[in-house]
Amino acid sequence: MANLGITEREIAGLLPPLRARGDTAASAGELAELFARATWTGIAEPGDRAAGLLVTALGAHRALAALIERWPVERLLAEVDPAERAGRGTLGRELTDARERWSPRLNSAAAVRALQGAVRLGCRLAVPGDAEWPTGVDDLGVHAPLALWWRGQPESMAAMRRSFALVGARAATGYGEHITMEASAGLVDRGFAIVSGAAYGIDGTAHRAALASGGVTVAFLAGGLDRFYPSGHDALLHSIVATGAVISELPCGASPTRWRFLQRNRLIATASQATVVLEAGHRSGSLNTAGHAAGVFH
C-alpha cells in the first residue's frame, strides 16, 4: 500500500533507468525509498516544511505510508517531535493542514506517468547522498528538496560544488547583458561553473556566455523537465543538456507557477558557492534569490 498499489516488479523496472549508475543491484527497500522520494516530488510543493519534517523523521517510504494510511495526528507528532520541543497545537495544525493539501495528489497513475515520462526523456533522479547531489541545498534543512530530477551530464552536477550563480532582470539593458557576458566568461576561464534560472535577460545571457566559453552551466527550472520554460529558450536549454545540466525538484507534468519560481530561487542560491545579482529592478525575483543566499550563509 505504501507504494500506491504499484508492485515491486513495476518499481524495479522504472527506477534503475532514472539513476546515474543504474542501481541494478539496489534492494527492494532501497528502490521503495527512491520511489517514495520521487512520488513526494509530485505530492508536496517545493520547500514544504511539513513534508521535510515528516520525511526527515520517518524516511520517505514510511512518510508516504503514513499519508496513505492516514495515521492519526497524535502518531505523527510522536514521530516528528518525540521530545515535544515544539508547540503541540501549532505543529499538529501544521501537519493536519499539510495532509489535507497532499491527499488529493495521492494518485498512482500520476506517479507512474511521471516516472515513465522521465525515462522517455532520459531524465535522472538524484537524492541526498548521491555523487550528483548538490550538497549546498542541504543547508535548507527541512525546506531542502526531497529529490531532484535532472537531464544532462553527471560531471556537471558535481561541478556545482565550484560554481557561481549569476542572476538578474528579465528586462535587462544592453549594459547589464554586456557585464553578464564578461562575468560569466571570466568565471568560466577561472574554472567555475555557472548556475542560473534560464529566464530571459540576464539568466539566458549568463548561460550563453558560459557555453560560448566552453564552460559548464546548470539551469534550475520551476516546472517539470518534459516542458522547457520559457519556450523561447528551448534551444538554449537543449544546448545546456548537451554539456551541462537542467534540474527541477518537480516531476514531469508539473507546470511552472509564481510560487514555484520563488522556491526555485532558493536552489539556485544554495547549490552554488556565491550569488551575484548583475542587474535587477526594485521588485525583481533576482532579489529573492539574493535573499535566499543571504539567509543561508549569514
Rank of each mutant, 00 (worst) to 15 (best):
T41N: 02
H61S: 15
H61K: 12
R99F: 15
R93E: 05
W71P: 00
W102T: 12
L91P: 02
W71S: 12
G5C: 07
V80R: 11
E30D: 15
A109S: 13
E84A: 13
A12Y: 04
R49V: 06
G22E: 03
R88T: 05
A83H: 01
E79P: 00
A65Y: 14
E84G: 10
L14Q: 11
N3Q: 09
E74V: 08
A109R: 11
I68R: 03
T39S: 15
R105L: 06
A38E: 09
E45Q: 12
I43C: 09
A36D: 03
R70C: 05
A32F: 04
L53T: 03
I68S: 02
A78E: 13
T56W: 11
T90S: 05
P17F: 13
A60F: 11
G22V: 08
R75E: 00
R75C: 00
A60V: 14
S108P: 02
R105Q: 06
R88C: 01
P82G: 04
L58D: 01
N107P: 02
R93V: 08
A78H: 12
A28N: 07
E30N: 14
H61W: 14
A12H: 09
W71R: 14
P17R: 07
R85W: 11
A60W: 09
L76W: 07
E10S: 10
T41W: 05
V73M: 05
E45C: 05
R21D: 12
G42Q: 03
L53I: 04
N3D: 07
R49E: 05
G89M: 01
T39P: 01
G59L: 14
H61T: 08
E8S: 11
G13N: 15
E94Q: 12
T41G: 06
R88A: 10
L77E: 06
D48Y: 07
T90N: 02
R9L: 07
A38W: 08
S103E: 05
R37I: 15
S103I: 01
D23A: 13
E94K: 08
A66H: 03
A20Y: 02
G22N: 03
G92N: 04
L18E: 00
I68C: 01
T96S: 15
S108T: 03
R37D: 14
L15R: 02
I11Y: 04
R88N: 00
T7I: 10
A86W: 09
A12N: 08
A78G: 14
P17M: 11
L106H: 07
A36Y: 06
R49S: 01
A86Q: 09
E33C: 13
G42M: 05
P104S: 06
G92S: 04
A32V: 03
T96M: 08
A63F: 06
A65R: 15
N107Y: 02
A78C: 12
I43A: 09
L18A: 09
W102G: 13
P104N: 07
P104L: 09
L64V: 02
E100G: 15
A63G: 06
A86Y: 10
P17C: 14
G59C: 14
A26I: 10
I68G: 02
A44H: 01
T24P: 00
A50I: 12
E74P: 05
A25P: 00
A20C: 05
G5Y: 07
R85Y: 10
V55K: 03
W40D: 06
A44G: 03
R19Q: 02
A50L: 08
L31C: 14
A32I: 00
G29D: 12
T39C: 15
T96H: 11
L91F: 07
